[in-house]
Structures are given as structure tokens and as C-alpha cells.
Simulated assay, not measured.
Amino acid sequence: MEHNRMLEGGKVEKARRDRDDGGGGIVGMEREELYKYLGYQQARRIDQKNAKELLKKRFGQRLKSILKTKLCAKNMVKAINTYAVPVLTYSFGVLTYTKTELEQLNRIMRTMATKYRIHHPRSSMERLYVSRQHGGRGILDIRALHQKQVKSLREYFYKTAASNPLYKALVINIQRKYTDKINKYLPLANEIKAMWAQEKVVILPLIIGATGEIPQSLIENLKKLQLGQTLFEQLQKIVLLETTGIVRRVMGDQQT
């Protein structure tokens, strides 16, 4: 018999499982064990801290190896932009970077450039990131690259979402539920309006799909109700946990 890990009541528990007839079996991963997926160490989620530390270290190593070559200015900048910086850009949109962390990466580049006498300590920092055609050094600004990459990914998903059948089904279902809620409570709204002599009664449905999808109107309605615009994150978590519980109960009934 093998002991595997499973989620039981929101906690990680050991579950007994027979080996197959061939004598083999898949041993469950422990909580601390990691595996690599798309170049990142993961467990139940991406280990953001360690992944960023590893990328920062690799970026510094590549940058150092380039600066030690004593290439001419043009070729050195080209090497930095094509060999060192892409180590970081691969993670943009996957790992979450703060402005401070992005500025720190830029600072590492400037510090090492100064150390190897490529950049004078009193020289203009902005000139480093200005293109060579305009009198600058032409080094890519990591913070600007991050913003560009995230924006590009966001635009891509928005464009492809319209042709995604799953996305269409979710959107149509959300829109239908939103309309149903308004129609359902419209008689009550009219009754309240007449009873309390109100000029206007507004219905603000709060809709969250079973898989956590939300309409844009949810955030707007939360703001109007003064409930806090970030409340939807907690609501999503509650819904997803309940959905997981339903799936677990259904799957358990099928197995028995």
C-alpha cells in the first residue's frame, strides 16, 4: 500500500492507495516538494520569491559575463539587450513584480555598468535608456519592458476571448443571470418606490459565476454600495471553495 496526499476538508491528509497490477505506482508529492513547469519551480503555485531570486541571479551572471568582455559600446549594449535582459522578460506577465523590484533590477544594471567602467557614476541615468539614434546608450529599460509585456498579454487575451467558446459560454451565462436578477426584483423595486414615495429605486445585482468569473458591473455595484471594490476577491474565494466542495461531494458519491 502507498500513502498519497489528498485534500480533505481543506487540509492536506494522507490517503491510502493500492499499487497497480504491474507493481508500479505514483508516489504523491510532499507539501514542500517542487517541480519545474515552463522553467519555474512550482508546488501548488509558483514560488514567486525563489523564482525571482533565481532570475535575478541569472540576470546578474549574464550581465557580468558581458561587461567583462570589453566589447565596443554598440556591441555591448546589443549583447545586454539580447542575452541578459531576455532572462527577465520571459517572466513578465507570469511572475508578479512590484515597481520597487523592477527599479532594483535597473539599479543592478547601472551599478554593474559603473563597476566595469561602462557608465560614469555622475552620468545621466536617463541617457542609458535613450536610443543611440537620439544620443543615448540604447539599453532597454526593464520597467518599461515589463509594462509593455503585461499590456501586450492583456490585449492578446482580450482579442482571443471573443473567439473562445468557453469564454462565450461564461459571458452569456453571466449576462443572462444579470438580466434575470433585474427582472426578478423589478416588481419589488416598483413596490418599494410606491410605498416609500421614492423618485427612483435602483437594482444592483452582485453576480459571481461558479468558476469565479465576474462581470465588470460587479466592481461598479460594490463601489456604489460602498462595500469596497476589493470585496469581490473574497467573494470569489468563497464561491470557488463552495464549487470545489460540490465537485468533491459529487465525485465521492460516484465512487461509492
Rank of each mutant, 00 (worst) to 15 (best):
I66K: 04
V171C: 06
Y158D: 14
E101P: 02
R143Q: 13
Y116S: 00
N81Y: 11
A79D: 07
S163K: 09
I66T: 09
Q104L: 10
C72E: 15
K57M: 11
V171I: 11
K68S: 06
V150H: 01
L102G: 04
L102R: 06
N75M: 11
K99S: 11
R58Y: 05
T96S: 15
M76P: 04
T98Q: 09
V77R: 02
K177V: 13
L105W: 02
T111S: 15
L102E: 05
K115A: 03
Y83L: 15
Y116I: 00
T111W: 11
Y156S: 12
H134Q: 14
K70V: 03
Y83C: 08
Q175V: 11
I108C: 05
A79Y: 04
T160D: 10
T100D: 13
R154Q: 15
K148C: 05
P165E: 04
L170C: 07
F59Y: 15
V130Q: 06
M125G: 01
K181G: 07
K78P: 03
R110M: 05
M112W: 00
F92V: 06
R107A: 12
M125T: 06
L145D: 02
A84V: 04
L67K: 05
Y83I: 12
L140S: 04
K78D: 14
M125R: 06
I174P: 01
A73K: 03
E103F: 07
R176A: 09
V77P: 00
L63F: 06
K99I: 13
R110L: 04
V130E: 03
L166M: 14
S124L: 02
L63C: 08
R122L: 03
N81S: 10
Y167G: 06
A79H: 05
T69F: 14
L95H: 12
K78I: 12
S163C: 08
N173E: 13
S124E: 03
V130T: 15
F59T: 13
F157W: 14
G138L: 08
Y116V: 02
L128Q: 02
P121K: 00
K70H: 11
G136K: 01
A73D: 03
V171S: 08
Y167K: 09
P165V: 03
S163N: 14
R62I: 07
T89K: 12
N81D: 10
T179F: 04
P86Q: 09
G60W: 00
N164L: 11
V130L: 07
K78C: 14
L170H: 08
A162L: 10
G60I: 01
P86A: 09
K57C: 07
K64Q: 10
S131E: 08
G136S: 02
K64R: 15
L145E: 07
L95A: 13
L186C: 08
Y116C: 01
P121Q: 01
K184D: 14
I174A: 08
R127I: 00
R110A: 02
R137T: 04
K70Y: 14
Q61W: 08
F59C: 10
S123N: 08
K184I: 07
E126V: 00
T98I: 06
K151W: 09
L145H: 04
K184C: 13
K56V: 03
N164M: 09
R122Y: 01
P165Q: 02
K56G: 10
N173Q: 15
L145F: 08
I139D: 00
I142T: 01
K99W: 10
A169H: 11
M109I: 06
A79M: 12
